[in-house]
Design a binder for these strands. Structure first.
Length: 858
DNA sequence: ACCCATGTTCTTTTT
DNA sequence: GAACATGGGT
């Protein structure tokens, strides 16, 4: 049986009727002519212009499967680049759904992961070690902070943030310090200072054996250019390179693709080991360049701020001679109303090629608009509509709420909690950014890379052990002078004049690191709780979970946190326990992968990566994160001037156009229902300011929007009505329909108690990932906080806790927002007890008994 | 060296 | 309204 034989594709799109018919090719069946052309096209270069929702993922996966099935490539000869790990995983899954095991060995990953893989293999060429650290933005900032302080550059207005972003920009353009210095105006002292910062930053990175995010791409390009033999290996290996979201590639990424698709240099062909075989060569005795497929949509380019260059896609045909172009314009995702709105908005960008999305599926529902008096009011509308959608049969999974800035989540979360709607915030993957988690991770980083001063300085002070800045500086100086690792410097601290207490601390810590390092390489865990079942197998590296456990046990970080009185520290302790669980999960998922793989994975998680399609929760995310995703129902919130388009972008050249594309991306995520909401006042930073409707709103044809409350209605009332006022100001018709629907829902909730399930931990029957549990707790904590009246740090304003408030059907109660109502039933148990209440004015609501702002009336 | 309290500065989007 | 920096007290 050939390895290439097509396995039964199961039921991917149209397989249902394709199975009996031998003439139907399952890889082409159900594709429209343009899609089919994109799948079967061959040649050196292909540009697929894929409008939103035009089935590009399907085209890409089918194209790859087709290449393999037609024996034009082995899986190992394919490199597919996606934007997020999640997209990569999905693509891998879909290809293996088409091909089965025959798809193994492909590289499907993000730019960053692919580059890390290459760099780890070739690190020695750079004077780096394979265990190099990847600095995230926080690490880079920490390093820059030191440098700026040392150079007293803050007096010139340099901050870690502004110098960091300038360095990042330069790196994305593949401009190194020397190149920059050569072009800079040397007369300008500020410029000279910046060059100094840049230079030191690069030096420190190298000394730390660390790369920042931008280096991952840039250094790989540099590696290929400086070492043609290395480049030759990858140029020869990858025969087909496919890049998704090509409109968002920056110059460095573009250059990487260029390097990879070059023909193998003639000089290198002879040096290849193993030697090139006859069939690899073309007529000239060369190994031709890889075939390149890029997919993108210039209307969805939203990352110019981080160096994405739209010209990469616009000039593709000029760039890659012989390129074929396929346009996918038929949309399979959204209703015509949604597409018309999207087309209308994006049509205002004058600097684009004309393109119109269309569907054959019909108009669908109108877009729903709502203007709240405040973002609180807006959020309440969102929560209510989500409940309605849910009753209508939408899964929480099917629903997403978008916003421009992360800070907009606050009000939304609060209201979703009150409404007992399960949700998840994407992208604030704040877990790994928490101080205690970073502290623990610093130990692991330092074990993998004992030259990393950022990690090292972090672990010295966590937990407090009497080693302060003074001792740290002495050790660092000693380390630098001796040219040894930081770990070694600690072991030799006898050579420095430390007091006995400090000395003891340092040696104790050094000893722990020694032990952990041995364990990490598989030296054997001696006196600690050795992993049971592993008998003296010398080379087996310890599971990451065990390593972390050793560190947390020995440093007593968790115990020390628990010993404190502050309840916040309890949460921190739990986060650390969660981190162990995350590590153990990793050990199970990728046994034997090792510490480095764990660290890499943690460094490169993207916002959209924690999306879990089976979580049963509403997803909240920025519009940037939403790119590439789709939902049956989408809420775009905060559609106001200053927010979208964002104030910061208005003065930038092309800024508003990019914001408009962002709006376009948001709109085109919706399949069936689209809600556009805004508030007439918004509390930004303490006080309240008046917000104007976004100009993009006016670009949507009026007839497409069904205004539940239009901006006009709200401003005519004077803008700053209280919540109590607006609660009764809502149109009566809305309540009537709401009320009738809620009657049905009360029945269904009562009979199958799905209402309770919705509030309890998502998917309570299933295995829950460690991170999910963390999020769940965080949510509960937030709920407690929200219910407490929003004074989290004020003494005496402890979280509201109705505790064991007895409620039974028939009781009357008063709610702070909804007024008086009657309990119809109580479901759930313990802290998840839910009261179903019919309020006199607003109809039925589900309330978390423990937290809702309610008082029982008698 | 550590802890706590009081000011101060922000807020675009992210691998 | 929160993270962070700074400065005084122990």
């Amino acid at each position: 049986m050939s390895e290439f034989e097509l396995l039964d594709p199961g039921a991917p799109m149209g397989g249902a009727f394709g199975s009996g018919d031998a003439s139907v090719d399952p890889l082409l069946d159900g594709l429209n002519p343009a899609q089919e052309r994109a799948v079967i096209a061959r040649g050196p270069a292909l540009l697929i212009v894929a409008g939103a929702g035009s089935g590009k993922t399907r085209v890409l996966t089918h194209r790859i499967a087709h290449l393999i099935r037609e024996k034009e490539a082995w899986p190992s000869q394919i490199l597919a680049i996606t934007f997020t790990n999640k997209a990569a995983a999905e693509m891998r899954e879909r290809i293996s759904g088409l091909l089965g095991a025959a798809s193994e060995g492909m590289w499907v990953s993000t730019f960053h992961s692919a580059c890390v893989r290459i760099l780890r293999r070739e690190a020695e060429r750079f004077g780096y070690v394979a265990g190099f650290t990847i600095y995230d933005s926080a690490d880079s900032r920490a390093l820059l902070k030191r440098i700026i302080k040392e150079l007293d550059a803050d007096t010139y207005g340099f901050t870690p943030a502004n110098s960091g972003s300038k360095i990042s920009k330069l790196k994305n353009e593949l401009t190194d310090v020397d190149a920059y210095a050569a072009t800079a105006a040397v007369g300008d002292p500020r410029e000279r200072l910046f060059i100094e910062i840049f230079r030191m930053y690069e030096q420190e990175l190298r000394r730390a054996n660390a790369f920042d995010f931008d280096d991952l791409i840039g250094q790989t390009v540099h590696l290929f250019r400086a070492h043609p033999d290395v480049a030759a290996v990858y140029q020869r290996r990858f025969r087909h390179i496919l890049v998704d979201e090509y409109q968002d590639t920056n110059h460095a990424q573009y250059s990487l693709i260029r390097e990879l698709t070059r023909p193998v240099a003639t000089a290198e062909v002879e040096r290849l080991v193993p030697p090139a075989r006859e069939r690899e060569l073309d007529g000239l005795g060369q190994i031709p360049g890889a075939s390149l497929t890029v997919v993108g949509d210039s209307d969805q380019s939203i990352y110019a701020f981080r160096g994405a260059d739209i010209r990469n896609i616009v000039e593709f045909e000029r760039d890659f001679v012989g390129a074929e172009v396929v346009k996918l314009e038929q949309n399979y995702r959204s209703t015509q109303n949604i597409l018309t709105a999207a087309n209308a908005v994006i049509g205002n960008n004058f600097d684009r090629q004309e393109k119109n999305l269309w569907t054959s599926e019909g108009d669908g529902a109108k877009i729903v608009g709502f203007t709240g008096y405040s973002q609180h009011d807006e959020a309440r509308f969102v929560a209510e509509e989500i409940e309605d959608l849910h009753r209508e049969g939408f899964d929480y999974n099917d629903i997403a709420v978008f916003y421009r800035t992360n800070s907009q989540t606050r009000a939304l979360e609060e209201l979703l909690i009150r409404a007992a709607i399960p949700y998840r915030v994407l992208g604030g993957t704040k877990f790994y950014e928490r101080a205690e988690v970073k502290d623990a991770m610093a130990y692991l980083t330092s074990i993998a890379n004992p030259y990393d001063p950022i990690a090292w300085s972090r672990l010295l002070g966590a937990p407090k052990r009497g080693i302060g800045p003074m001792a740290e500086a002495q050790l660092a100086n000693f380390q630098e002078a001796q040219g040894i690792s930081l770990h070694e410097a600690m072991l030799r601290c006898d050579e420095l004049a430390f007091g006995p207490k400090v000395r003891g601390s340092i040696l104790g810590l050094a000893e722990l690191l020694t032990r952990a390092s041995k364990m990490a390489v598989g030296g054997g865990a001696t006196d600690v709780t050795a992993a049971p079942g592993e008998d003296a197998e010398e080379k087996t590296p310890a599971p990451v979970g065990d390593l972390l456990k050793l560190i947390l046990d020995e440093t007593e970080m968790i115990e020390k946190l628990r010993a404190k009185r502050d309840p916040q520290d309890d949460a921190r302790a739990e986060n650390l326990e969660e981190l162990i669980a995350v590590a153990r999960e990793f050990d199970v998922k990728q046994p034997g992968a090792g510490l480095l793989a764990f660290l890499t994975e943690v460094s490169l998680v993207a916002a959209a990566d924690d999306l879990d399609d089976s979580s049963g929760t509403v997803s909240l995310m920025t519009m940037h994160t939403a790119k590439g995703l789709e939902y049956r129902a989408v809420f775009i919130t905060g559609v106001e001037e200053g927010l979208i388009p964002h104030q910061m972008s208005v003065d930038e050249v092309g800024g508003v156009n990019e914001e408009r594309r962002l709006m376009y991306v948001g709109i085109t995520r919706a399949r069936e229902r689209l809600y556009i909401t805004l508030a007439s006042t918004r509390a930004t930073f303490g006080d309240i300011s008046v917000a104007m409707p976004s100009r993009f709103l006016q670009e949507i044809p009026e007839g497409l929007i069904d205004w539940r409350q239009s901006p006009g209605e709200v401003t005519s009332r004077g803008g700053t009505a209280s919540r109590a006022l607006n609660a009764s100001a809502r149109p009566g018709a809305g309540y009537a329909s709401r009320g009738s629907r809620s009657t049905e829902s009360a029945v269904s909730f009562g009979s199958n108690s799905s209402g309770a399930a919705a509030v309890s931990e998502p998917a309570s029957g299933n295995m829950q990932s460690a991170l999910d549990q963390w999020r769940e707790r965080k949510r509960a904590a937030k709920a407690a906080q929200a219910a407490g009246g929003g004074f989290p740090n004020t003494i005496g304003a402890g979280a509201r806790d109705n505790g064991d408030l007895e409620l039974t059907a028939g009781d009357r109660l008063r709610h702070d927002d909804y007024g008086e109502g009657r309990v119809t039933s109580v479901t759930g148990a313990g802290t998840k007890r839910i009261a179903h209440v019919v309020f006199d004015s607003v109809g039925e609501r589900k309330l978390l008994v423990k937290l809702a702002p309610i008082t029982k009336l008698d």
